[in-house]
Write a protein that binds this DNA or RNA. Structure first.
Length: 862
RNA sequence: GCGGAAGUGGUGAAAUGGCAAACACACUAGCCUUAGGAGCUAGCGCCCAAAAGGCUUGCGGGUUCAAGUCCCGCCUUCCGCACCA
């Protein structure tokens, strides 16, 4: 036997065989009903867009989820591990234009192709729960949710600015605007247009979305921080300044007899209001028209400011343009002290935030300071740092002084108060005086879901001439997206030209009416898809309450960090809405979130233009699916970027070949060994005590138990799969080093069997094809996919003897061997007896000896 | 500017405060041969001809018997947000 040429492992043959066998068994990866009594585990990877090709980022993402799912099955959990397709979106329309293929056909063709790729790699999805978002049985529930939200006042319509390409005659997403031009027409400037749009009132949940971030301890801090910033809560005060009216006949200023007009500003620092030396309006502020009506030159300047802001916004560097503004010649009155200060129009004030007007306090705000310097507006100090003797204000801080831990000065009756105290009092005075209130402002905006495109969920609303906006009744759902239509890039939404679709009778009055032709943002589809997996065939509801109640929240969600804001904030919002509709009990969709790093090559993200794209198909064809996915886990910890090196894949493939040959050398002996379960830990311990188990066998069993412990711990803890794979490699190296003893019978066949079967079990989450084949070849019982995960016995994992470093003054000088359970005295004695140590101490007695049992000895010698 | 993460051999990386570089890749030398993208053996952080020895985790301090790891201050890179009042 030994002389005979060993057979090489042929991944293509073995993997294809098992792929077909597994595909034929629909129960293999199926979730069980709740009544089974097992603990549940819902592991989810973000669903892909069906572009037609898996890329390496997908392979990495799904390899992580797959290893976890397989591990949890082996640990005895009832696992839900589904997959689906985020199948609406613009690429299908572009492909339709380019190839004259209908979007539906193109999309479903891609879905089939990618599903084949996933099956070839061997991902353990339950295809019975597959969700495809572009099919009516899914998107009808988008429409259903839209109607429920409409009933709850969470849907509204309003005019809003959108990116508009005049060449395409359609709206563009922000991502499709490149340097202010259309991505398809590089010469065409994108315009900002005002259009009626549908919005979802996500801001109604702003406070809760923010607060609940605190409960998401299983989410990366980075994602929580990004969401916190995105929601952008800020607490402050709104205050009305009074507009000083002008009598145009006499030119006199005054307010006799009339209700005074007001300019409302928002500030987080009302305590600095005595330092306000101007009021600044955003160029688009509604009052601007009235203030500039007498002065054409002024109007032109304002138009210039707006134009400049627009250009900057399109170029994506609003923050970079220089601050400037124009004085209106008009004045406002500070409600606290009656002071009259000029009104300016400034390009750094944003209409979209707060009230579109601010009080400018150059002494205590960086931006106001810069502006005031430029235009010689007075700068006044009204806050001084505390800290002099007796806590009086200290001298002249450098301006602008923006810290909030000071005392008020030059602020009338409020002088001497702390900032915090002053904020409280000034707010109360404003409320009592009827010129202000406490206010919380969010950066988060309502979610604009209208898209003037074809390939998306039709918005279920009808415009009736008589009844206005009328929701489509539930009984009429789904509003089917028409097929076989002409897709063009001119003339707005393609749906608007489909007469059969547009013309309907009003459900309320029966008169002629027109359908809404906007479709929904595709982020709607992905906001709740993971609930549908629990009940994918339900015709009566998006999903059943009991099923969702059993499976939710998701135990582990895995995906790219690029979804940290949009998808993950929308789906948190959607979950809270569903909770308020009494459809689910959980307030958050996922307990734990993991964001894996990018797959890069030669230090750059893979992209066609860089020519550094690696195709999963090529890798699988050359090295096999096991080697490809195992490399994806081995090359780096999963949260870090992974540099794809083909030599590394080849290395993993050689390793799997070594495993194969090692196992096959001993398969015959192992298969003949007694069947049934392995000896218990107690029996093994007894064998050791009676030395019927040789030194080599003990050593290898010890290594085995240590390897099990390490891998099990990593699955439960920090998820460093690279060190899991390394641990398996070490284990295999140890077995291979003892190959002679394994073959000679020095290691009993029952031990040999346990060593090799355990190897197959440890490999199962990472290299399932090879593991399945080994399991059969080694006489394993049943399917390895449901075989129990091996248990590590701490007693058997323990070493007899350990090496202990001996340091002198913290520097390593020797290593001594002692019994693993040696006490401090024994270790100290062993250290002092060492020749090198004796030479170094040169007869001096150590001033101090630190012994850390089982770890180290350190001698302090002066 | 604000926030987050990271910085260790030629490369990917490893290291509950306790022997820095495990596990791989690449490379070097040798063996084997049914000549393979195969297998096996050995070497492989830096300095010194070698040994002995010394040095080494971005930089500078500190805490500790002991620091890649903890603390303080810098530098660099990547990512996100950014005129948010």
């Amino acid at each position: 036997m030994a002389d005979e040429k060993e057979q090489r492992y042929d991944p293509a043959a073995v993997e294809t065989k098992w792929m077909q066998r597994w595909a034929a068994d629909s129960s293999l990866y199926a979730a069980e009903p709740a009544s089974g009594g097992k603990p549940k585990y819902y592991v989810l990877e973000m669903l892909p867009y069906p572009s037609g090709q898996l890329h390496m980022g997908h392979v990495r993402n799904y390899s992580i989820g797959d290893a976890l799912a397989r591990h949890m099955w082996m640990r005895g959990y009832n696992v839900l591990h589904p997959m689906g397709w985020d199948a609406f979106g613009l690429p299908a329309e572009n492909a339709a234009l380019k190839n004259n293929t209908p979007p539906r056909e193109w999309t479903l063709h891609n879905v089939a192709a990618m599903k084949r790729q996933m099956q070839r790699i061997g991902f353990s999805y339950d295809w019975a729960t597959e969700v495809t978002t572009c099919l009516p049985e899914y998107y009808r529930w988008n429409q259903w949710f839209f109607l429920r939200m409409h009933e709850k006042g969470l849907v509204y319509r309003k005019k809003s600015k959108v990116n508009w390409c005049p060449e395409c005659a359609t709206v563009l997403a922000n991502e499709q605007v490149v340097d202010g031009c259309c991505w398809r027409h590089e010469e065409t400037k994108v315009e900002q247009r005002d259009l009626e749009q549908w919005f979802l009132r996500i801001t109604a949940y702003a406070e809760e979305l923010l607060n609940d971030l605190e409960t998401l301890e299983g989410w990366p801090e980075k994602v929580r921080t990004m969401q916190r910033n995105w929601i952008g809560r800020s607490q402050g005060t709104e205050v009305d300044f009074f507009l000083e009216e002008i009598n145009h006949g006499t030119g006199e200023r005054g307010n006799e007899g009339t209700e005074r007009r007001r300019i409302r500003v928002f500030t987080t620092r009302v305590d600095t209001i005595f330092g306000a030396t101007s009021v600044q309006l955003a160029p688009e502020h509604p009052l601007v028209a009235a203030l500039t009506c007498q002065d054409a030159g002024l109007r032109a300047q304002v138009a210039g400011l707006i134009e400049e802001q627009r250009r900057a916004r399109e170029a994506g560097d609003v923050g970079a343009i220089e601050k400037h503004g124009v004085p209106t010649g008009r004045f406002a009155v500070n409600p606290y002290n009656g002071e009259t200060i000029p009104i300016w129009i400034a390009n750094y004030v944003l209409m979209e935030y707060g009230t579109g007007a601010i009080m400018s306090v150059p002494g205590h705000d960086e931006r106001d300071f810069e502006f005031a310097k430029k235009y010689a507006i007075p700068i006044r100090r009204v806050i001084a740092p505390a800290g002099g003797p007796g806590n009086e204000p200290s001298d002249e801080p450098e301006l602008p002084f923006t810290a909030e831990d000071g005392l008020l000065v030059n602020s009338g009756e409020y002088s001497g108060l702390s900032c915090a105290e002053a904020q409280k009092r000034l707010k109360d005075v404003a409320v009592r005086g009827g010129f202000g209130e406490a206010k919380v402002i969010f950066r988060l905006k309502d979610w604009g879901v209208s898209r003037q495109r074809y390939w998306g969920t039709p918005i279920p609303m009808i415009h009736c001439e008589r009844d206005g906006l009328v929701p489509v009744p539930d009984a009429h759902l789904p509003v089917i997206l028409p097929e076989k239509i002409e897709i063009t890039q001119t003339g707005g939404s393609p749906l608007a030209r489909v007469a059969d679709f547009v013309n309907v009778t009003c459900p309320r009055c029966g008169g002629p009416a027109k359908r809404e032709t906007d479709t929904m943002d595709t982020f709607v589809d992905s906001s709740w898809y993971f609930y549908r997996y629990t009940d994918a065939k339900n015709n009566a509801a998006p999903f059943g309450r009991e099923r969702a109640g059993y499976w939710f929240p998701i135990d582990q969600y895995i995906g790219g960090v690029e979804h940290a804001i949009l998808h993950l904030i929308y789906s948190r919002f959607w979950t809270k809405v569903m909770r308020d509709l009494a459809m689910v009990k959980n307030s958050e969709p996922a307990t734990r979130l993991f964001t894996q790093g990018m797959v890069i090559r030669n230090g750059a993200k893979m992209s066609k233009s860089k020519g550094n794209v690696v195709s999963p198909d090529d890798m699988v064809a050359q090295y096999g699916a096991d080697a490809t996915r195992m490399y994806a886990l081995f090359a780096a910890p999963p949260d870090r970027d992974l540099d794809w090196q083909e030599d590394g894949v080849a290395g993993v493939s050689r390793f799997l070949g070594r495993v194969w040959r090692l196992a096959m050398r001993h398969a015959a002996v192992v298969k003949d060994a007694a069947t049934g379960s392995h000896p218990s830990s107690q029996e093994r311990s007894k064998e050791w005590a009676t030395s019927s188990c040789s030194g080599t066998a003990q050593k290898l069993l010890r290594k085995m138990h240590r390897t099990i412990a390490k891998i099990t711990l990593d699955f439960e803890g920090r998820w460093h799969f690279n060190t899991c794979v390394a641990a398996i490699m070490e284990y295999v190296n140890a077995l291979q080093d003892a190959d002679a003893q394994l073959g000679s019978g020095e290691v009993p066949s029952s031990v040999l069997r346990e060593l090799l079967q355990t190897l197959a079990l440890l490999l199962a989450p990472f290299a399932p094809y090879l593991a399945a084949e080994l399991w059969v070849q080694l006489g394993g019982q049943g399917s390895i996919l449901r075989a129990p995960w091996p248990e590590s016995d701490p007693g058997l994992a323990k070493e007899n003897e350990i090496e202990v470093p001996v340091q002198i003054n913290g520097k390593l000088v020797a290593v001594v061997r002692v019994a693993a359970d040696a006490d401090g005295q024994t270790m100290e004695a062993a250290a002092l007896a060492d020749e090198k140590v004796k030479a170094r101490t040169a007869g001096k007695t150590p001033a101090k000896v630190i012994v850390v049992p089982g770890r180290a000895v350190n001698l302090v010698v002066k």
